[in-house]
Design a protein around this nucleic acid. Structure first.
Lengths: 215, 215, 215, 215
DNA sequence: AATGAATGAGCTTTCATTCAT
DNA sequence: TATGAATGAAAGCTCATTCAT
């Protein structure tokens, strides 16, 4: 029923060339991102998509269906891209480099095709329970994917043994998701930014090799 | 007009002993946190505070004034507590330990008196511009405070010189703010959690002393 | 513009063989009957007729035109059938038997080709004034026809002289129209049912020859 | 929760003295009667009740709740009145006179406090299934009450033995309910009208003592 | 301080109707 | 003929806010 792949949608610009359905989704993602779900009205979405509110119903059965689609693309897009990129690495790639690749790819999506991903991150906590329920599986599976990356790297001795895998995953993925909220492309190249983030994550902010948290 | 200090409010339990005004704020913070601003109605707040919607206007001039108060307490509470705690450290304390202390105190607030802080974090990005404008000063000042902590520690050689101070601050504060979204007290003690987070931040997740991000 | 005779439509089954226009009418009559005019949407009619809403306008100029057609067939069908049947009676037929025949024929339509007739009965009172105005003539003429039947039978001494012809007509026709709302073919044969109704109408429900209503 | 007895409401005029809740009900009953449920808008009801649409929700939770109340009063009012009146008859009253009394009382309600009763009669068939389900019990119980009246009178030989009790009840009650649709008080006194109806029901329209339906 | 009824603007959604294809 | 997308006017309902009591 839904032949539009997440990536295609995420890639296409808000240009007039897009189909009405796509235009609605692009506009909705942006408005949801900056205004939230509840305070974005269908009239607003319609207006920016160049149609009237009633016409939306020729493409979506309800406001919630638009939300679902935006959420789906939000996680789906990143998850698919990350998995694909990591899978393409040579078999000899170290666990650490796998994680670095995943982080780079995730950042790329969160920052460059940001509306869907950011809308997802920002809205998630405040969505009605039933909506969350419909998307929990995909999210959980993506989280599990990351956890595996960490687990394997830890097992091979590349990651510290004194850290809980769950905490690492939640902290790291949460942190890089959140970069979308403050990243400013005008401050430097994306690649340079990426390397800074990777340094912090892998080696920390401290200069020396001291242990942290001692009192 | 506003005689309630942030800390008092943040400390007081939702107990019936609280004044009506305080009860409204506590309830509002919780509802804003989990449902967002737009989808939380005054009737809902009133109901949970044990009064009717009209009565709210005996304590606040508008819904937005409640929001303002919740936001103010949200940042104000943490900022004041962190500053106080760090200021109480002996003059000889290292920059690194100052930062560690700040992180611990911030986490304590974000996790244990969470509604105001979390509501703040979650809602911020989606607030109307004028609302944000009213609170930007406090937020900026708090961010500046952190940046100074980082700057000083970097100047004294305790933090890596190859990292941008701004990126460090935004990444670290963003990351610890976000822990409020996934931290689960049932998984272990707060102190243990804190130490894990400090380890990651200061020394990273990698086991060895390699440099990160090399390709 | 309207080449379909009422009877043909009323007789034809909902079979796929019917023309699109006929299918629309049959479906509309049924939906109007069970759901009323206002709450039956053109999309609903279209769907059950196997087309889309827009296509209806190739056959009817408006929803109201469909209504008009359904109403026309509703009274027209019964009226024509009753007149024809009664006219076919031998000249010697008594007034009473004429009325009995009319009742039987009317019941046959109201019960066996029920959608048009029942839709008519049920909707009439709640139709907008202008719609009613367009059909009042036919209805009035049919009512007048019945009133004549009663008048003649009363004149010939076959009906009681102490009853107002208008009251008789309205009461009797109203009552038999209403049978469509509760008649259940599973409770017995149509003929048996007819005879019961005729008994009540002509001779009443009382067993003896007492006068009614004395206090 | 609902302290207004059906009778009180049914009796009170549309005067400004009535409470807002009552005014809404009176207006709604009238509009439902003449326009049906679906095509009567809350704005319309509100306007005639002298308030705005939103205010209705201070008194009713939904449009359907108004409908429920109107329906409840519609059957409840008549049923209660009829039962009370018949119960007040001396024990020696004949079955026939009991039925006559019931008919008179029912007509009184259907014709003189007509909006609620007529709205009920007219709308019933076209109501959504769940609405009907909520009111079926009361209706059924009232029908059963009538059926008992007929049964007893038939058992005592006062009603013809060759008629089915169910058919009698449905035909008679349906017919007198329907009088509300055509009764015109300007044509004569209510009492005179009643007596005509009673004559038809008990003794039929035929003048002689012939049996009906012979061919 | 608190209430409950009222308001008016806004919301999502439905619908009859139009029209290019 | 039929379609699907579009429109604009409603609809039922929610909500922040006001105000007499």
């Amino acid at each position: 029923m839904n032949s539009i792949s997440p990536i295609e949608v995420a890639d296409s610009p808000v240009a007039g060339g897009a189909s009405t359905r796509e235009r609605i989704l692009l506009v909705a993602a942006r408005l949801f991102r900056y205004g939230g779900y509840a305070s974005t009205s269908l009239r607003e979405i319609a207006k920016e998509a160049g149609i009237t509110a009633g016409s939306i119903y020729n493409h979506f059965a309800s406001k919630e269906e638009i939300l679902d689609e935006v959420l789906r693309i939000g996680v789906g897009g990143v998850a698919t891209a990350v998995r694909k990129r990591v899978a393409a690495l040579p078999a000899t790639t170290t666990g650490r480099e796998r994680i670095a690749t995943a982080i780079r790819e995730h950042l790329l999506h969160a920052l460059h095709q940001g509306d869907f991903t950011s809308a997802n991150v920002r809205m998630w906590a405040q969505l009605p329970a039933e909506v969350k329920a419909r998307h929990r599986a995909v999210r959980r599976s993506y989280a599990e994917y990351w956890r595996d990356l960490f687990r394997q790297a830890q097992a091979s001795g590349e990651l510290r043994a004194d850290l809980d895998v769950k905490v690492m995953e939640l902290f790291v993925v949460g942190a890089i998701n959140w970069t979308g909220e403050w990243y400013d492309p005008r401050r430097g190249s994306f690649d340079a930014f990426c390397e800074q983030v990777l340094k912090i994550i892998f080696d920390g902010i401290a200069s020396g090799p001291q242990s942290a948290g001692h009192r």
